[in-house]
Amino acid sequence: MKKNNLNIHNLITYGIVVAAFLFVSILVWTGNASRHLQAMLVPIGLNIILAVSLNLIVGFLGELTLGHAGFMSVGAYAGCLFAIKYAEILPTAVRFPLAMIIGGLVACVFGIIIGVPVLRLKGDYLAIVTLAFGEIIRSIIINLEFTGGASGLKGTPQNSNFYIVFVVIMITLVVITNLVNSRAGRAICSIRDNRIAAESLGINITYYKLLAFVIAAFFAGVAGVIYGHNLSILQASVFDYNRSIEILVIVVLGGMGSIRGSVIAAVIITALPEMLRSLADYRMLIYAVVLIAMMLLNGSQKFDKYKGRMNIGGLFTLLKNKKSAKEAG
């Protein structure tokens, strides 16, 4: 019964994404989508992939990392360098998926290299060390010759489009939701809820922490490859800690441990600055105020009655509770 519920929950999430995709596709086909909207679709999709994968670490494993953009940059450079090298030899249909897999795997390797020493640390110490790793990766990429240095990597074929991003989003969602509902996912959640209890039940803490870390790194790497294929120049300066923080904001806003929340929050947070474009210079100020207000409403005791409802995941629970209350009454 419980398992069935979870599956329905996941299917609703997939359904929302598919419906949104179809809606936007119809807009594009009928020529009703503005250039602005079309340009925003790939960044929104990327943020969905990044947020869902980061949610695995922050929401389900319960560890704070500020280095997600670092994995993204490693994946982006690995995938794009591959794509540039084989641009003439392989057809796009083979090359692009291969580039994504290579980018993801390289990010995985970095996930292991970074994760093994770093995951011994906890809380804020882990946060600052992952931030430090992200910054180190960025500095090194800027100083290397074959990555194009500070001026950026040029010549990646621009193969990214909205449809490919949609396919990758669906794969990400299926993999992560199934992982979370599996034995491994329950082990990961148990580490978050009580590490010592989990350890005494015989759960291998290091293994599961690393597993979550590496899977999240893989998807961040894939997102990086798509990002690289979306722009004519790939610059390392984009992947600074502010990018990691942006993804973290999406995860926290969407509700930690809520995949559907991450998806919706990714759309809102990516689109919000664009929607505020008419306010020109004031848009970042308003964005900041909105962010603070949402966090205050969410966390303050004064609003405790509504606690957990102001984030999007919570809103769904609220609606569901109301519905079931109606049905019962």
């Binding site: 926290v252 930690m256 100020l285 900041a288 105020v289 603070i292 966390g299 005791q301």
Partner: peptide, 20 residues
């Protein structure tokens, strides 16, 4: 107002103040 909230909520608020 966030003294009893989760550390992550406070962190994001601080980031919001920084952007502001």
């Amino acid at each position: 107002p966030l003294r009893k909230a989760s550390p992550l909520t406070v962190l994001i608020t601080a980031i919001g103040v920084s952007y502001f």
